[in-house]
Design a binder for these strands. Sequence first.
DNA 1: ATAGGGTTAG
Length: 632
Amino acid sequence: MQFGTPPLSPAARRAPTFHADPAADARQLLGALLPPRPALHHAHARLAVLGLATARALPQLLAALPRLPLAASHSYPLSLFRCASCASAFASNHLLRVLPHPLPLRLFPRLPRRNPHSFTFLLASLSNHLDADPAVAVSIASRLMGAHVHALAVKAGAAGDLYVRNALIHFYGVCGDVAAMRKVFDELPLVRDVVTWNAVLAGYVRAGMVGVAREVFDGMPMRDEVSWSTVVGGYVKEGELEVALGVFKNMVVQGVKANEAAIVTALSAAAQLGLLEQGKFVHEVIKRAGVAMSMNLGAALVDMYSKCGSVAAAKEVFDAMPWRDVFAWNSMICGLATHGLGHDAVQLFEKFVSEGFCPTNITFVGVLNACSRTGLVDEGRWYFKLMAEKYGIESEMEHYGCMVDLLSRAGLVQEAIELIEGMHIPPDPVLWGTVLSACKRHGLVDLGITVGNKLIELDPAHDGYYVLLASIYAKAKKWDEVRKVRKLMSNRGTSKSAGWSLMEAHGIVHKFLVGDMDHKDSVQIYNMLCMIDRRLAEAGYVPDVSSVLHDIGDEEKVHAIKVHSERLAIAYGFIVVEAGSPIRIVKNLSVCGDCHEFSKMVTKVFGREIIVRDGSRFHHMKDGKCSCHDYW
DNA sequence: ATAGGGTTAG
């Protein structure tokens, strides 16, 4: 595997110090960028080719500035700003783009030399600024500024320039102002090229109007690979993952060379769906089309394989990457954690830190998840502290979620409650839900009743809380209360989101609902399920119906549980997945307790492997055991 | 000599 994008050398990773003399700066910067490795990053290569002829290199240097680690360079742009009065049009245009806001707008009217290019640089700067910072104040100010720049361009007679128009369309798209964007687009129908069309496409996608984007795409007089990848990205953004993959396949079939963006996006779609065959197809496209492997692609592949249940393939890709960025490390660490390989995840985190990388909030989601899933209580507490104290990362809801889970699971329910009550943001009810299920597990009846009633008040539509509370009452043999909770639940008319299970077979995705009879092979599936049930009963399996709360008899409960979507998928797996291969299932909800037992038993009795991805983790089941250690 | 569109981790 070839990876074509090496990172900066260690020398360049340290922020350079800058002098007032741009010539000296250029030499120093180029020195820092010169190759530890034969291949250089694109921008750096351009710099190196231009050599040390500073006068010529300066604009390129400026162009490369935003991509370089210039933490210590606050005064540098200002010193450039002061020299701008004598800058050439060429250099000052670059200045417009690289200076931090609000310098470009202050600089623009004072520049002695401007040309139509200047407007595009200025607009690009505004768009970047707006894109990078979603704050309302920034947004309003930038929009006003953009409209002002638009007016200036009209006055200067530059508004008909193709590049200026494209930059304007992009700008209004970033603002989310599709009406203004459309107006610029419609004004001069003859001054358009593929970039114009792509900018409009992207504007609609950004505004969440993927349907309109699709109409534009279908009617475009010209398309290139960016048009395709924008549409694929649009569908992924809207959660229409199957459609996104369909468009991607169409692109490949039509012979359009898939670019990195399209592939990364398609991999993300496959990852979110959890469909390994789809993901492998995208990987094949990479290999067949000879797309150069990059850090982005590597990271996306690692993520895809982890989320599609093949942590081994993820590791293989990760290990083959000669250079990795934070994305790649985070994907791998989080992947190990969701697969229950907590020790490996923590070990990898330590390696990551020892190689000089700086963890992000996502890294800690992975690490804390790893600790919680593996029961590493002390380590979890320690990393939680480390995150804030050493790295200055503020805890987000996900971090609290991991910690509450970690503590509750270990029986430290009181500590979990203290953590929730001390939070600096309003806690998500889900955190209390974690505490509630811990109360059930650890038999804390009184606390469970308090928390359960509070939760039902907070979120009356969530049926899981009623189920938990009722089972806590049941555990305490308070049958009157159990009945009351049931009644409350049916009166409130809680809506449980419908559970489904997906199964892939030879490129076709099969979706099952509870008691589903719609599948074309339904008869065979139910026959298979009967056979499995018989064999499991012989092996001593007894259904546990405690998770069924409907007011029905036990016999009916057993029946209800027997046709859970997951079991239908397993039965179908017996029919279509060749022996020796694991049966892979993707679920939207958590596995119910009895299905979990049932599935484990299947792996033991029939000697098959089952891999289930539920809402938040993987269950690797083999020989009657599960990687989650029966806690989820 | 300069310019414009698309990109992923919880």
